[in-house]
Amino acid sequence: MTRNKFFLIAVIAAAMLVLPRNARAYLDASTGSYLIQMAIALVAGGLFMFKTFWHRMWLVISRKKKGGITKFNPRADEPNQADRTDERIDTDHEHE
């Protein structure tokens, strides 16, 4: 999916959020949660696709440059608690 398509979907999602359709379904307190999740997930999904694409590109470039695999950290530029205090728990414990 191209980025233009992704932004189009994001805009449509936002429009859907603002202009709800008429209803046949149930009402509950989670309706608002359900809809905001869809809007956020559409945008976040696009970013995630871009990040995954960039990750793959990085791997290809690294292989070509160094003849080997360099581990790419997609969050390298984000501030992280682990950088500021001590090591964070590894939520995936299998590598102990």
């Binding site: 959020l17 709800p20 359709r21 008429n22 209803a23 046949r24 379904a25 009402l27 307190a29 989670s30 309706t31 608002g32 949660s33 359900y34 809809l35 905001i36």
Partner: peptide
């Protein structure tokens, strides 16, 4: 969003 849709019927 929770507040806005609390009393509005929406086809999910």
């Amino acid at each position: 969003s929770q507040h806005y849709f609390a009393d509005k019927p929406v086809n999910l």
